[in-house]
Design a binder for these strands. Structure first.
Lengths: 218, 218
DNA sequence: GCACTATTGCACGCAAGAGTGCAAGAGTCA
DNA sequence: TGACTCTTGCACTCTTGCGTGCAATAGTGC
């Protein structure tokens, strides 16, 4: 939904000047860092330029606006989050060992969501949800939404094998996900620099156990 | 932890001028509305003054700073959230009908968290967690933390009655809470003006069912 | 009604930050 | 090397918003 590549049309039309390419990359890197750290309003273009090792004027040569920059950069971040999401739990339901598989997915989920830049990105999206509601919605469909769908597929596979008894797979997927990392994720949103590990693992394991007791086919 | 009543010492020392009282109330109301709607940085004191029907100068007669105003107002909001929280699930574990009681608590929780000003407050706390980390921590301990403790006590009562088999009550309380409204709350943080109801109820009911299947004593 | 105190409005000063213009310099491609 | 394009630095404008000073006014308590 959001427009990326604000000034170039199709990428294929003639190779871009390497200077432009380098500038773009440096700016993108500096911008996402600043936006995530300070938010849209408090991130200044002077700082971004300085951090990117680029003149402020150059930013304006590429992006029309602070807003255009933000949209482009945030769009990329959401793309990245989506790319991560398609890989999570993709193979779920492949074996007969439900507990092992679910535990592995629980760990994978925890690591992926709490380890990388997802939590800061979520904070930014929530902070700017009033100003840029499309991004929040877009993210939610493409990242957590995709994970839920994938999880649901895997749970259905277990159901078909007679290892779990799943009635509403989408609902069960949500329940599994929030059992595993709901509490950890919620805390993480509030504790800006808290250590991510510790209770996270315990919650993941315990969550899987509860899920299994509720949904085991026996 | 945060300082409220920035300029008066103990409240008991002589009744305050009613003019001050009125100003304070009007300012507080306008300020929390603006801060919640626009965030710390984008909320302007001119707007708050206009909205409160008060001269900007008056705000500075009461609060030294924009920051002092924010701290005072946010402190009050957290107090209110805490007051709400002590009432949630206080009577849990009083009867023998686990399912009915848990379902009632699930509805109560959903309504309390998703219905009032809690979600916008959470958004604000998350947005400003980098600038004011004390408030985020403080809130988390005093509101959700308190609810978890209360829930855990109730679950323990069911365990003592032999109706549930609870090993780690704090963990079980978290699991229940996030089964019931984890998904709804997470969505709510991103969807600024989305309708709160609809799937919320379904998640609450289904969450309780899963919890019971996992923890029933039979 | 009187002394006192808070509110008001308004015009400031000041700083930060978005966005622009331009001429000089440097990289790129053939 | 030459033609071209992008980057750079710098100074500049404009807006927004914080915070203050002051003299006039109005509410409060006795």
């Amino acid at each position: 939904m959001p427009d990326r590549d604000p000034k170039t049309g199709p990428d294929a039309t003639a190779a871009v000047d390497p200077r432009v390419r380098r500038s773009r990359e440096a700016i993108a890197e500096a911008a996402i860092a600043q936006f995530i750290e300070r938010g849209y309003r408090d991130a200044s273009l002077d700082d971004i330029a300085r951090l990117a090792g680029v003149a402020k004027r150059t930013i304006y040569n590429i992006y029309t606006d602070k807003e255009a920059l933000f949209r482009a950069i945030l769009g990329e971040a959401v793309d990245t989050a989506e790319r991560f999401s398609v890989e999570v739990a993709a193979t779920l339901g492949g074996t007969d060992d439900v507990e092992t598989e679910l535990t592995a997915v629980a760990r994978e989920l925890s690591r992926a969501v709490l380890g990388g830049r997802i939590v800061p990105l979520r904070r930014l999206l929530i902070s700017e949800a009033a100003r840029f509601p499309e991004f929040a919605r877009d993210y939610y469909e493409r990242a957590p939404g995709r994970v839920m769908t994938t999880l649901a597929l895997g749970l259905n596979r277990f159901d078909e094998r007679g290892l779990l008894r799943i009635d509403d797979a989408e609902m069960a997927a949500e329940q599994l996900a929030f059992l595993v990392l709901g509490a950890s994720l919620d805390r993480a949103l509030f504790e800006v620099d808290g250590p991510p590990t510790e209770a996270v693992e315990a919650r993941a394991i315990a969550g899987v156990r509860v899920f299994l007791r509720a949904y085991a086919a026996t």
